[in-house]
Design a protein around this nucleic acid. Structure first.
Length: 281
DNA sequence: AAACCTCCCTGGGGGC
DNA sequence: TGCCCCCAGGGAGGTT
């Protein structure tokens, strides 16, 4: 599913084709994804000035008219199966193609989402920083604010296991179930370790693992479910490189020990009991 | 406040 | 072969 690297890959993939273009009209084929669709006709005639990303949200900033300078932000979350592609206008829509944003250059940004966990928001751009979906989020994991001191501070203050901490958007953003499992493996940390018991060296390794895994996945063009598609339509390929995710009962790629799975906070965790030995109490 | 659970949705895969 | 059931996922919102 799209985690931070896939969203960033999408941002980079679509931007060159539509930034600077005037949006002529929008075609909406479903009344709602996760929530009711906002009135996207408000964007007719607006110019897409730039595209940002915050956590797993894409932020498309639109200037309503040159005279007024009024800015609107179209915010898109891809959920677990969403994808965005730039295609020629009038390309026939498939079953799960829910929204088209059509631009004056004949290109069309198409949102596809079979499982409909995605979401679309529209609001004045000056509300970005205070928007309820964005205001409480942790710092960007690849920004200077996300340093070892920050991670130490938030982990020491919590009472839950480290896997749950990595999945908590108030502490870390952009890391979903796949990369949480992979980061803990790379850092040799058992997923059930209480975050407050982590040693400084472990937190340092975890911090490095989170950043290096996200960077590697961005460099690789993002990983995916089977149905994830790049902005240009080619398939992602980083999923070939998983060390533990989805590998229950398979041998560890490092030590050959059998990978174990367990359920934490209703999510599947995978780990190597040898490489990620339980921290002594 | 923090931790934990439930729910939204659909396609794919396993079991029979 | 076909059908049914369960599972996967992010994160909002509720409960404890």
């Amino acid at each position: 599913m799209p985690e931070l690297p896939e969203v960033e890959t999408t941002r980079r993939g679509i931007s060159p084709h539509i930034v600077g273009q005037i949006l002529t009209h929008t075609v909406v084929r479903v009344p709602q994804l996760r929530w009711a669709m906002p009135d996207l006709q408000l964007l007719a005639g607006a110019t897409l000035t730039h595209i940002d990303r915050r956590a797993k949200y894409l932020l498309l900033h639109m200037q309503k008219t040159a005279e007024s300078g009024q800015m609107l932000t179209l915010m898109i979350h891809l959920g677990m199966s969403g994808s965005l592609r730039v295609i020629p206008e009038h390309t026939p829509a498939q079953k799960h193609d829910h929204v088209d944003w059509c631009f004056a250059n004949g290109q069309c940004l198409r949102l596809t989402d079979p499982r409909r966990f995605g979401a679309v928001f529209l609001f004045p751009s000056d509300e970005v920083n205070s928007h309820p979906r964005l205001a409480g989020l942790a710092p960007e994991p690849l920004s200077p604010a996300f340093d070892v001191a920050y991670l130490t501070c938030v982990l020491k203050a919590r009472q839950k296991n480290i896997k749950a901490c990595l999945m908590d958007n108030h502490l870390v953003v952009g890391v979903g179930n796949i990369y949480a499992n992979e980061a803990l493996f790379q850092a040799n940390i058992h997923p059930e370790t209480p975050s407050g018991l982590l040693q400084h060296t472990q937190i340092t390794r975890l911090h490095h693992a989170i950043q290096s895994i996200l960077r590697a996945a961005i460099d690789a063009g993002g990983s995916s479910l089977r149905d994830y598609v790049h902005a240009d339509g080619s398939l992602g390929f980083f999923q070939q490189q998983y060390f533990v995710y989805g590998r229950k009962n398979e041998p560890c790629r490092v030590c050959k020990t059998t990978i174990i799975s367990l359920t934490q906070q209703t999510r599947s965790s995978f780990f190597c009991p040898q490489c990620q030995a339980q921290t002594p109490a």
